[in-house]
């Protein structure tokens, strides 16, 4: 185990995968400038700067992936993905199916998002659910440096296009990272804390908010389980359902806005498949239906806070203590 930041963990994964497989290459806006270690190790053919043109970066990755390479592209900030939607959604996501399986698109698109740097809504927009909705794409958004490394390695080895979101608020947060292999399979959630009264389901920075809330709830005698989704697509339905069947209560927490967000999918899943286990309604705590503000206090308030999670948990627990379920 080594202590390193989330950012360095991603870099280490890239190093290891590029050393392992000569078909892996990386390009993007400032990639060769900023990732000096990669450039030194693998040279300018495999580590490239690109124009500030997200459409052609993503399209070039799709074309290269279809014909033998395994590109990782850095599109910098998630809102810039709007310029690459056609290439990611219409080409990378659809053309495997549309070609009757003749072509595959093993590629990773990297983008940062979330509060932390006061960059405002054209650099910070948690739009990960858009890609969950698009067929053919996989979506990951890790919460820890170890997961960042393990999921990046798995994403590079996957035969499908993977959207890899880095939470800006976590980019320079340190954590323990295992040496060498230690892949985290795509589609596998992690139970970060076990509990029996309530499940908090989250991903990225709000996993840590949930863990803080769980600590506060423990002091009140509420045993809280925290599930970190890690991969948003494919979603680890089994882990979510097992936890909620055990606790009977669920709060879904994310920084992205509520409407048609990942939380809506998780809540619907629980309602459809674990209704009989529920002892209270499901609550979603999310960012508002608003562009992310730049002002630091507002930006910080955008994502759900620990006290709100504690309050929601208390509400669910109290409700079920006072009144038996109606079903």
């Amino acid at each position: 185990m080594t202590q390193m930041t989330f950012h360095d963990a991603v870099d280490q994964a890239l190093h290891e995968e590029m050393a392992r497989d000569s078909r892996v290459l990386m390009f993007g806006e400032g990639t060769a400038t900023k990732r000096k270690g990669l450039l030194k190790a693998f040279g300018p053919q495999r580590v490239r700067n690109t124009p500030l043109a997200e459409g052609i970066i993503a399209g070039t990755a799709a074309g290269a992936a279809a014909t033998g390479l395994r590109p990782v592209v850095d599109l910098l900030f998630a809102p810039f993905l709007c310029f690459a939607m056609d290439e990611l959604v219409n080409s990378a996501g659809k053309l495997r199916y549309m070609s009757g399986g003749q072509f595959s698109f093993p590629m990773v698109a990297l983008a940062m998002t979330g509060g932390g740097w006061s960059v405002g809504a054209q650099h910070n927009h948690n739009l990960e659910a858009w890609f969950v909705h698009a067929p053919g794409l996989k979506v990951v958004m890790p919460a820890t440096p170890a997961d960042a490394k393990g999921l990046m390695k798995a994403a590079i080895r996957d035969e499908n296009p993977v959207l890899f979101f880095v939470d800006i608020g976590l980019a320079f947060a340190p954590g323990e990272v295992p040496e060498g292999e230690a892949l985290i399979p795509l589609g596998q959630a992690a139970v970060r804390r076990e509990g029996t009264d309530l499940t908090l389901i989250s991903y990225a920075k709000t996993v840590h908010t949930c863990l803080a809330a769980a600590e506060a709830l423990a002091a009140e005698g509420v045993s809280t389980e925290v599930v970190d989704l890690r991969t948003l697509k494919p979603l680890d339905e089994a882990t979510i359902l097992a936890s909620v069947r055990k606790t009977g209560r669920a709060v879904v927490v994310h920084e992205a806005s509520r409407l048609c967000g990942v939380g809506a999918e998780v809540a619907a899943l629980i309602s459809e498949q674990a209704f009989d286990a529920l002892r209270a309604p499901i609550i979603r705590l999310t960012g508002p239906d608003a562009p992310a503000p730049a002002s630091y206090p507002l930006e910080q308030a955008f994502a759900p806070q620990a006290d709100a999670i504690v309050a929601a948990a208390q509400q669910l627990v109290a409700r079920t203590l006072e009144a038996a379920p109606i079903w």
Binding site: G59, T60, L69
Partner: peptide, 12 residues
Amino acid sequence: GELSLAPGVALS
């Protein structure tokens, strides 16, 4: 769309 993919195929 073909124009967006062509450089990547050529890169391969």
